[in-house]
Design a protein around this nucleic acid. Sequence first.
DNA 1: GTGCTTCCTAAAGTAGCTTTAGGTTCAAGC
DNA 2: GCTTGAACCTAAAGCTACTTTAGGAAGCAC
Lengths: 131, 131
Amino acid sequence: MISIGELARRAQCTVPTVRYYESIGLLPKAQRREGGHRAYDRADLARLNLIRRCRDCDIPIERIRELVSLSEGQRLCGETVAFFEEQRRVIQARIDALKELDLTLSLHLQSCRSNCLPNGDPCEIFDQLQA
Amino acid sequence: MISIGELARRAQCTVPTVRYYESIGLLPKAQRREGGHRAYDRADLARLNLIRRCRDCDIPIERIRELVSLSEGQRLCGETVAFFEEQRRVIQARIDALKELDLTLSLHLQSCRSNCLPNGDPCEIFDQLQA
DNA sequence: GTGCTTCCTAAAGTAGCTTTAGGTTCAAGC
DNA sequence: GCTTGAACCTAAAGCTACTTTAGGAAGCAC
């Protein structure tokens, strides 16, 4: 059995985050030592690892709840693969949106480079943004 | 002078969002009609447009505060361009992170495709995620 | 004057944590 | 046995950028 600090260290997250997951029921209620400190075993670490890996992939908590029950059920490939493929689509959509934003910003910058004059001339980026 | 609904429609945001911006001081306190309804002019629309364009580019509100004061000051190209270039760096970093996540997910999916057996075999994705 | 839409305020809810405040437990060193 | 410092505890508030809810009031068409 390991402490909450050790658990957090191994799963690469903070102690308050572990307590938070317990409070929302994403982790089961931890066992306690005599003094009241939480104590964890290998299974707890495995589950927290699963959660953190998913959060690193920006999978929302409610989705992870579904995944955790998948992982504790029959672990069917079909459902699991569908889950991750859906998540990839979400990420891809986000990448596309960000690329568009980047393009927009680069166009604004171009308008300054091509239209603004060197010395203290009011920058034209704003004229585009306020229209 | 136009109503808050009309303003929101033109700037492509919701009415509560406009009131929210006023409440945090990003928009100045609106003028009022006799009955108490807010009334806006062209300058208000320009400012809201500036704010929304930036939010569409995911620039945080506190950064937009700086930008608004830039836009109301001398509008120096140097400062303005630096502002937007910094923002592009932030967006680029986010794109890079998402691409890495996508790669991670695709590797997990590969492990299923290459290791899992067809019929009801427990999916191996979880073994990776829980390690 | 009777609806219907738009508007008003204030407060609470959202995600996913982090931070704060005020206290208890544990382990090491003397 | 005692002290000290780190790690732990709880509950509540704070964070971003809004959205939602509740309970009314104003404005406009018919």
